[in-house]
């Protein structure tokens, strides 16, 4: 059995679940964080050169374990942290970061094995406008959406849509200042209060008026696992992230046409894992909201019939066998 290389921060509970599941299956795992390099992770890699040169050879080593690059059969990559270079000046650190990114990053991202997900694919798949474009091209139903830094364009878009608008934050959904943290959620748009749009790009979308419930589809290696999310409060009805206590969960079958379009989306995006969010209309239509290439699943792990961490571990094991 080859080894699963797990690359993530040290306090990611979902990744702990996967590591435990791999251990339960006797699948060797080597977990590291890019923030451990260079202080706690040693890299030695060489390329033989010549016409018969194969993949990079060498080892990754921490205080507790070591793995031969040739023994890595799959990579689980979530959200590792930035490299750390204590003791270096800002200028030296900038250089060292680039060297680490290209050196360690080049060796790892060149591993010729299945990835969940390859970081370059995951990074590209984070862009919401691209998600909507690819989703529509793949055959998924999508909503009229505007990205702009112009208040006037928002008012024009509202007239064009002829329905209430909602706005969702692009990028990190929270801002921290000393002593306070602000968390942004989906909210309704007041066309008379649009100050601050000019500060950056903002996303506006038609508000679904006939929402029945929402679904998070966890896609693992081509299999679609649907979790129905019913909102029991007004706030959760607009954005279920605002009121977790008001949510109920159940497994739901993903329609074949939706599953087929999701697989096309995953193929085009080059992803093997993603959390797709849908709204299901009262007429049964599934409309795509977004797809997070590192979307959360841990809080759903014991709420549905299929243990998601086990499914991820089984997929990784299959790749290593």
């Amino acid at each position: 059995m080859r080894t699963v290389l797990v690359v993530d921060g040290p306090h990611e509970a979902a990744t702990d679940l996967i590591v435990q599941a791999l251990t339960d299956r006797a699948v060797p795992a080597f977990r590291m964080d890019t923030a451990q390099f260079p202080a706690e992770v040693e890299l030695s890699a060489h390329h033989r050169g010549g016409p018969a040169a194969g993949p990079w050879e060498g080892r990754l080593t921490t205080a507790c374990r070591s793995v031969d690059l040739a023994d890595i059969g799959a990579v689980y990559w979530n959200r590792p942290q930035q490299f750390e270079f204590p003791g270096l000046s800002v200028a030296d650190e900038h250089w060292a970061r680039g060297a680490a990114r290209i050196g360690l990053g080049g060796v790892l991202t060149g591993l010729p094995v299945p990835w969940m997900n390859h970081p370059s694919r995951a990074a590209a798949a984070e862009f919401k406008p691209e998600q909507l474009r690819v989703a529509a091209a793949a055959g998924l139903d999508t909503l009229p959406t505007l990205v702009t830094n112009s208040a006037e364009e928002v008012r024009r878009f509202a007239k064009e849509v002829g329905a209430p608008l909602i706005t969702k934050p692009l990028g990190i959904p929270y801002i921290a200042h000393t002593g306070q943290v602000e968390t942004m959620y989906t909210r309704r748009v007041d066309l008379d209060e649009l100050d601050g749009i000019e500060t950056s790009a903002h996303l506006f979308q038609e508000e679904v008026q006939d929402k029945a419930y929402e679904v998070r589809v966890i896609v693992i290696g081509g299999a679609c696992h649907g979790v129905r999310i019913d909102a029991g409060s007004t706030a959760a009805g607009l954005d279920w992230r605002t009121d977790y206590d008001a949510l109920t969960y159940s497994s739901v079958a993903v329609p074949c046409s939706v599953a087929a379009a999701i697989r096309t989306y995953m193929k085009w995006m080059g992803l093997t894992y993603a959390a797709h969010d849908f709204v299901v209309r009262t007429d049964g239509r599934w409309t795509f909201y977004e797809a997070n290439p590192s979307g959360q699943f841990a809080w759903l792990n014991e709420k549905v019939e299929f243990p998601l961490a086990d499914t991820i571990a089984d997929t990784l094991k299959g790749w290593c066998t």
Binding site: Q82, G105, S120, T167, I175, H177, Y185, R187, G196, T199
Partner: peptide
Amino acid sequence: AAPFPLQTPAPVGARPGPVRPYAVTGARLQ
């Protein structure tokens, strides 16, 4: 898109300025 690693930690500012992003309006403050 910088593929490696994926992101940097969000910085913590001293205090908000007089002009703020529209997206922050209505945000949940803690």
